[in-house]
Amino acid sequence: MSKGRERAAKARQIVADQKAAERRRTVTLWTSVAVVLMLFAAGLIGWTTLRGQDDGKVTVPSAAVDDGTAFAVGAGPVTVDVYEDFMCPACGSFEETTGGVLKQLATAGKITLRFHPVAILDKFSHGTAYSTRAAAASAAAGQEGKFTEFHDVLYANRPAENTAGLTDAKMIELAASVGLTSETFTTAVNGGTYKTWATQATEKFSKKGFNGTPTIAVNGEQLNGPDNSVPSTALVTETIDKAAG
């Protein structure tokens, strides 16, 4: 009698175990299906967000060259493209060491110097998106024929990374100090007229396969110093001489 009861208990246990295993399988299957679907949905959100991103109405400054992304100085036979972010420290030091030489070469008719403002450091200005604002303001200055002057005064007053950057009012003030006082400029800066242009120009920069600033290209060929560094003044002038033949 007691043996029969023991057997029955054992059988019940086996059935219970089987049921538990069955439940585990079912739960695992359906939760896995749910997880895969949810991850797929999350990816889809990213995709649609990307596709839904509209640059809005892009006002391209008519003075800009190279597919509306650059402001040119001089008209020499060798083209030198300089891609810069107005907050980038390496661009600041490039301007200090090599900027003057390039401008001289442009004035002397040896090169066409094309400045491409890009905005890749927005995250370093406490949410004020200084890189985009400065690039947009420089486009407004370019439209008024004062790109270089404004560009130079912005670099002379380049804010450090991880600060709020220069305010729009301060940029307008600096522009005035280099003789740029037009109403059109002030309105464009305050209204952020060229902000979407700055975003689009940055995208075109990335599409060319460039990742950092400053990026320098001579006759379309990217120029790097040793170990992917910013090229020295000597290397830049050498390359220009070679390109000039």
């Binding site: 695992t28 896995s32 949905a41 990213g46 995709w47 990307l50």
Partner: peptide, 21 residues
């Protein structure tokens, strides 16, 4: 664009503990 949302979703799924393995 896809990666950040995938990461957030994975984070949420681990947080609630769904299909943990």
């Amino acid at each position: 664009a896809v990666q950040p949302f995938l990461e957030i979703a994975l984070g949420l799924l681990l947080l609630i503990g769904l299909a943990t393995r």
